[in-house]
Nucleic acid binder design. Structure first.
Length: 438
RNA sequence: GUGCCUAUGGUGUAAUGGUCAGCACCGGGGCCUGUGGAGCCCCUAGUACCGGUUCGAAUCCGGUUAGGCACCCCA
């Protein structure tokens, strides 16, 4: 009577209005669950990032997920999309405006200033990893909550640190075996030379028949004119003034040194005079790294000598890089870069009957204490079902602890490969198992 | 924020607007309280949500939500 069954079910369901609708069981847009299978790649990336950071002398920092919203308005910039369109802002009961951090650099700088890190030996090398939030439309390799890893060198303006940051980023991809990563670098100048260049650029474009977006860019952020993708604007790029030709003496020399250091370290890079960044705090060196065939950046960063002042601190030169963990994971997956799962083989303990089930608990504890990883499945009662699980889990040994054994204080050690079994006293079993695992 | 595409058990899929939404995998149980990944049998579970058209909707229409792609921007 399947019909009756179905009807019954439907009616039953209809009578339970308290049951939440499926919509309530859905994730918010752009946010996702990270299931066990994915963690092997993510762990690999995170562990590599951590080891690399520590090796290069960086110390870990973590800041709150929430910050006062104006930290980002002032630091990242009011005119930027990140602040204007993509920030999650909430108002507390007390009326404070807090924001889910859309990036780490401003919070790290805030912490540097607030915690008096300028009184420690300079520069400070800090690294971080954690979730950041941007309210934008999700698409490939783009989430509303994602994980950023980054490194910052604060408190020194020497160009060697610009290079150090780029080198470290490059090494991360090297260690993760991601090949064909290109690094694009550029210098966007400083307070002295950038305004003049902006004006020059704006003047050049003002005379041309440009797309609607660019008409806005002219006043808002003329540097962005350079990477407009509208077909209409493409031909103009050729004749546009190049920023590298318009740098002041200091910026020119700074950039030259950065490149020399990169050459010295044999880091392959590409000069991209049209590379600009979307965040206000950047000055001088900017860079982005791309995996071959991908349009979105894997890691990017640059120097941000004005950020400290922008958020209300004393002038502090700094340079840093940020990378998106999920994007790196996607690249690794799509390129089939294997991450070996080093799950240790575990000895499987099998019980039969209530007495042995109960007593197997202390047996399991004994193994844990002596550092031998064991596995068991108390919910399975039949011996064959447990044998099956032992086999599925690739257990090298199965320990059969049945009724008979539990009375006689023995355990059967079964070699799963050969099928050879041996009865040993329970007091010796840990020792015997250790001997066989070697 | 804009535009296009998509949505059937946990997964992958089937169903000219018309019987009870079918199949496979996964999962659970059994054959099998004393020995292995197989086999056989049984079970669990679904038309994303809300509404409309219709005698009748998984199927057509509208909205919502989520996913994908592109723009914008970015990690």
């Amino acid at each position: 009577m399947p019909q009756a069954n179905n009807k019954e079910k439907r009616e039953t369901r209809g009578r339970q209005p308290e049951k939440p609708s499926v919509n309530n069981l859905q994730n918010p847009k752009g946010m996702r669950d990270i299931l066990p299978e994915e963690w092997s790649v993510l762990d690999k990336i995170m562990n590599t990032a951590r080891a690399l950071s520590e090796f290069y002398g960086f110390s870990r920092i973590e800041t709150p997920v929430l910050e006062y919203a104006d930290l980002f308005s002032r630091g990242v910039g009011l005119g930027t999309d990140i602040v204007e369109k993509e920030m999650y802002v909430l108002t507390t009961k007390g009326g404070d405006k807090l924001a889910l951090r859309p990036e780490y650099t401003a919070p790290v700088m805030r912490s540097y200033i607030q915690q008096g890190m300028s009184h420690l030996p300079q520069p400070r090398r800090l690294w971080y990893i954690g979730p950041v939030f941007r309210h934008e439309n999700p698409q490939a390799m783009r989430y509303r909550q994602f994980t950023q890893f980054g490194m910052e060198v604060l408190g020194n303006s020497d160009p060697i640190f610009d290079a150090e940051i780029i080198i470290a980023a490059y090494r991360l991809f090297e260690e993760l075996k991601i090949k064909n990563v290109t690094i694009e670098v550029n210098s966007i100048g400083c307070k002295t030379c950038q305004p003049a260049y902006r004006k020059k650029l704006a003047d050049y474009y003002r005379k041309l028949d440009i797309c609607e977006d660019c008409k806005i860019r002219i006043d808002q952020n003329p540097l962005r004119l350079l990477d407009c993708k509208n077909e209409k604007c493409q031909p103009y790029k050729q004749g546009a003034p190049v920023i590298l030709d318009n740098l002041c003496q200091n910026c020119r020399s700074h950039f030259r040194q950065v490149l020399e250091y990169l050459d010295e370290a044999k880091i392959p890079y590409v000069l991209n005079p049209r590379l600009v960044r979307g965040l206000d705090y950047y000055s001088r060196t900017v860079f982005e790294t791309f995996a071959e065939g991908e349009s979105s950046a894997l890691a990017s960063g640059g120097r941000y000598d004005y950020l400290a002042e922008m958020i209300g601190g004393r002038s502090t030169p700094a340079v840093g890089v940020a990378a998106g963990i999920e994007r790196i994971a996607e690249i690794m997956k799509s390129r089939g870069i294997a991450v070996q799962q080093k799950t240790k083989e575990k000895v499987f303990i099998i019980h039969v009957g209530d007495m042995s089930k109960k007593k197997s608990l202390s047996l399991i504890e004994e193994f844990r204490k002596s550092g031998v990883p064991v596995l068991s499945e108390p919910s399975k009662e039949s011996l064959s079902a447990q044998m099956e699980l032992a086999a599925k889990n690739n257990a090298p040994l199965a320990l059969i602890f049945g009724q008979k054994e539990s009375y006689e204080d023995n355990v059967i050690i079964r070699d799963m490969e050969s099928g050879v079994q041996e009865v040993v006293p329970i007091t010796k079993v840990v020792e015997e198992v250790k001997k066989r695992l070697r």
